[in-house]
């Protein structure tokens, strides 16, 4: 089967400042794809290129063989409707209730009646464990609930691809684990492809089926593949160091 998202020779810059260059990797259908790397290496920037927010300075991104950037803005907008995105801090609209937040994409992009929108929004909220919180405002709920509400909004339109920017950052280990389980459950039952930016090692090994590793010094990717296999067989010291939380591999101690 052909890859769901293909990134080819991608170079990302902010003005004159180079963030990452020569990124080429594939995200397969139903992958849980992890974008990892140290702080400040451009993980979130890469995500924002993949969801169509930032334009690459060079290279291409294909979704289902369609270029994301070499098309008219309107077509890109249509492609973006099949993406669900959950941002780092939730990014829920603060003047709307949770129900209205989750219902907004449904109102915008479907012809459902207001009653049906509400019913679906309630369903999505109950899927993320927030049944009954529909009338709350984002400022009235905790950080963990905020992240789950953001997830509910991301899955409102049954997207083909779900993007997460640090979903478990700032959550306690149990909430983080529950959120991981939820993501796994959704990906398995909705048959969606999932792309996650994270540096939580527990999550990376627990749910990741594919990954790309960005390096902050060389400003390019070091490797791509299943994180569990990278841990076993990747020869790059920097990747090993990251995946082992800075501890050196046992076999290497003798060489040091």
């Amino acid at each position: 089967m052909k890859a769901h998202i293909r990134v080819r020779d991608l170079t990302m810059t902010y003005g004159d400042k180079l963030i990452q260059q020569n990124l080429s990797f594939d995200v397969n259908h139903n992958d849980i794809f992890i974008i990892m790397g140290g702080s400040g290496c451009g993980k979130s920037t890469l995500l924002k290129h993949m969801i169509g927010l930032y334009q690459p300075s060079e290279g291409e991104i294909f979704v289902d063989d369609n270029s994301l950037w070499h098309v008219a803005a309107q077509q890109r907008q249509q492609m973006m409707q099949h993406f669900g995105v959950s941002y780092q801090a939730g990014a829920l609209v603060s003047s709307l209730t949770l129900l209205e937040n989750v219902g907004m994409p449904l109102e915008l992009y479907t012809k459902l009646l207001p009653k049906e929108v509400e019913e679906l929004a309630r369903l999505k909220l109950s899927m993320v464990g927030l049944a009954g919180f529909g009338d709350y405002y984002p400022s009235e709920i905790s950080g963990g609930m905020l992240k789950r509400a953001a997830l509910a909004r991301a899955i409102a339109l049954d997207p083909d691809i779900l993007f997460f920017d640090e979903p478990s950052a700032g959550l306690d280990p149990i909430s983080a684990r529950l959120l991981d389980d939820l993501i796994l459950e959704l990906s398995a039952s909705m048959k969606a492809t999932i792309v996650i930016v994270t540096h939580e090692l527990a999550s990376i090994f627990a749910i990741g089926t594919n990954s790309v590793f960005l390096d902050v010094d060389t400003k390019t990717m070091l490797t791509t593949g299943n994180p569990n296999e990278l841990l076993k067989s990747c020869d790059d010291e920097r990747v090993q160091l990251f995946l082992r939380r800075g501890e050196v591999r046992k076999g290497d101690v003798a060489n040091v």
């Binding site: 369903l123 109950s126 899927m127 927030l130 049944a131 939820l182 459950e185 959704l186 039952s189 909705m190």
Partner: peptide
Amino acid sequence: RLVALAEAV
């Protein structure tokens, strides 16, 4: 599974 998820909590 989705139905179970919606009714889990």
